[in-house]
Design a protein around this nucleic acid. Structure first.
Lengths: 222, 222
DNA sequence: GCAAAATTATGATCTAAATCATATTAAAAC
DNA sequence: GTTTTAATATGATTTAGATCATAATTTTGC
């Protein structure tokens, strides 16, 4: 982790939904940090000191279970807020970890400044509230999927979500991350990907996955 | 569902966190409804017209999967807000159903009034935001549990949560609801409850469950 | 550029928990 | 208060998917 070049004050969740008059304050209070691939941005269980906004790169948000099991709850993209899960009514501890999956640049603001931003910018508060509602909906939809859908369907769902996130039918992800994102194991992902390939729903080359039939993939979910 | 006697303007999430001057407005805009055991308060997929506050009774918040599978995501208690999951950025549809598990009285306010309340009462907004963050944390903790813990541990977790919710070591719940809350089936709940009884961690009489050793039950989770 | 570490590939085995089947009992409805 | 319906009890069977084991290949660090 090290300091990095400036963001454009125009991209992230904070800047997008703050009134123009506030942007100067943001500029004064932000700090730029960059992280190499696989570096930890913040760690589950450690105290929340501030909020992050992703400027460049990709980040996985994940929970650990024991030494070697994880669950990826979200992939964050350019502009996204990171660390807001820590803002509950309990102890201010991160309830997830955030790890760069490629070289990444983020803006960081201390908690106090972010809270001031919420007070000053009603539309920021509103958008954050909506974002929480969206994430809660999605988390509970996935809970239902974990309980009632089989792995192949969950994997189809994960592939479609990744495609949506990347705004492309083509993206790159390791088998293990795909397993942690679908709530299963590496081996099971491997086998089901083979099946999808045989059914010509996807094409795979190393870590690169291309969706060939979004439609047929979607049928696995309903 | 029918109209019911007045709430005390003092108990629910809305009244608790509104400024005193706003309470008169709440009084003008609330509507009282009562639901019998097993009646539906609102249904997954139907449009969000308003927000509910539970005044008396118990409500399960659940998602359906096919005709006969469900997942209970939450039990709501006196004072709790209901329907806020529908306030995301997408279509305003309830993403869960709410069903009375005992005779229940709720206050109802139209969406527009609730949104006005949020604008007028910053501390209501703040509390709602914290509540979302709490629920999101909890949903993701449960996702991790579904993926990585076995049923017996999840059942222990569910029993402890129910105990916490009821603020008592004694509570009442059907086996099927316990299954839907733990992400498993009736039969598996039945068998694991037998084991807990044999281990003297709980006592069961009909639908009534008493926790005998919170401590030992807790060991199943860690 | 090479050694070490991580990721991928693939078969064999095992097991937790779902499903099925069928009494029995309890609760609700008429 | 009896019929109907729903919830509980419990054994037998099946299966999806985890775990284990071991190569082969790729990536990364020095």
């Amino acid at each position: 982790m090290k300091k990095a070049g400036n963001c454009d004050l125009n991209t992230c969740f904070l800047c997008q939904y703050s009134i123009p008059e506030w942007i100067a304050a943001v500029s004064d209070h932000r700090q730029h940090l960059s992280f190499k691939k696989n570096e930890t941005i913040f760690q589950e269980g450690s105290p929340v000191k501030g909020i992050f906004f992703l400027y460049h790169g990709k980040v996985k948000v994940h929970k650990q279970w024991g030494p070697d099991k994880e669950l990826i709850v979200r992939f964050a993209q350019r502009g996204d807020i990171l660390g807001h899960r820590g803002l509950g009514s309990g102890e201010r501890l991160y309830t997830v970890s955030a790890t760069a999956v490629e070289d990444t640049t983020v803006c960081y603001t201390e908690l106090a400044f972010f809270e001031a931003s919420l007070k000053v910018n009603p539309s920021l508060s509103l958008k954050l509230m909506q974002f929480y509602a969206d994430e809660l909906q999605e988390a509970e939809r996935k809970m239902r999927n974990l309980v009632h859908m089989d792995v192949k369907s969950r994997l189809a769902d994960a592939l479609l979500e990744l495609s949506r996130l990347h705004k492309a039918l083509h993206f790159t992800i390791s088998r293990q991350d795909l397993a942690s994102f679908s709530g299963t194991t590496y081996e099971t992902v491997y086998r089901n990907l083979q099946e999808f390939i045989a059914e010509k729903l996807i094409a795979v080359e190393g870590r690169a996955i291309t969706i060939l039939s979004e439609k047929k993939l979607r049928k696995y979910i309903a």
